Simulated scan of single mutants.
Amino acid sequence: MKILIIEDEIGIANFLKQGLEEENFEVFVAYDGQSGIEIALKQKVNIILLDWVLPKITGIEVCKLIRKTDTKTPIIFLTAKDTVQETIEGLKAGANDYIKKPFSFDELVERIKIHFRDENLNQELHLGNITINKLQHQITVDNREVVLTHREFELLFYLIKNKGNVCTRTQIIEDVWDIHFEYDTGVIDVFMNAIRKKLNLSKEQELIKTIRGVGYIAND
């Protein structure tokens, strides 16, 4: 699991990084708001720990900017701001949680685990007669189990998770393949053909439509 720390106090940031790495998390650190946004957009992190008072861009603005493109990644404010109004302001900006400094590291770890647990509860998704469970790495179609390769599984899960939204080939390459440079996106079509064949999806069902020249969309 990947955690992004956006914290300008180097001592606190390094303390959190070391402690969380000892808890077997992969940790990224940004020391100002602008760098934090850049890392958040490049890295597919599972949770963001965000300070309120930051150089260049405040934590509130960072939270709002991240939420424009990412509505799901949990954001936890770590801040000395402690009034009710400030707490409300942080939550309205899009934060999921709020921990006041100074805080217990053990409490922080438990809060993080709660958000990961809540995320995992949503790892079984449905699309028409398809059920996909990420935790068990299992797919069934009308209760018939279907075996996909790892990459096929990740691609199908991504499309179903974003059900109702068009997923461009560039987005898929970046989010599923984790490739952030120019790459032949035609490989996605090869994987989609394999997925459709294994799931025995007829064109009439149109559960996963091809948007010519753009990408794909999953719809019930």
Rank of each mutant, 00 (worst) to 15 (best):
E7I: 08
L159F: 03
N122F: 13
T140W: 02
I195D: 00
I188L: 10
E21I: 02
G36E: 11
V53D: 06
E154G: 00
F181G: 06
N162M: 01
V187F: 06
E107M: 05
L108F: 03
T131L: 02
I179R: 08
D175Y: 12
T83D: 14
T83S: 15
I172F: 09
N129W: 02
L4C: 11
T83V: 07
K209E: 15
V84I: 09
I75F: 05
T140M: 07
A30W: 10
I173Y: 06
H115T: 09
F181S: 14
E89H: 10
N193Y: 11
I173F: 08
Q123A: 08
K198F: 05
Q138A: 01
I188E: 04
S202G: 08
F116R: 06
R212V: 10
T210Q: 12
K2G: 08
L159P: 02
V109N: 00
E21V: 02
E26P: 06
I179W: 13
L148A: 00
L49R: 00
Q205V: 11
T69E: 12
E9W: 05
K44Q: 14
V84Y: 14
P102E: 06
F181Y: 15
L65Y: 09
G36Y: 09
Q171I: 06
Y98L: 01
T58R: 00
E23P: 08
H126F: 13
I112S: 01
K81C: 10
V109L: 02
K92R: 15
D106K: 07
I112A: 01
T69H: 08
V147G: 01
S35K: 12
D178M: 12
I47H: 05
T140P: 02
L50I: 04
A40E: 14
L127V: 04
F181I: 12
Q171G: 07
S202Q: 12
I112L: 03
I47M: 13
L127C: 05
L201N: 07
Q138R: 04
K68C: 04
L135W: 03
N129S: 14
L49G: 01
G94A: 07
P55L: 01
N143I: 04
T185R: 09
G36N: 10
T71E: 12
E145P: 04
K161I: 02
L49S: 01
R67S: 08
I139M: 00
T69I: 10
N46F: 02
H180F: 11
G36Q: 08
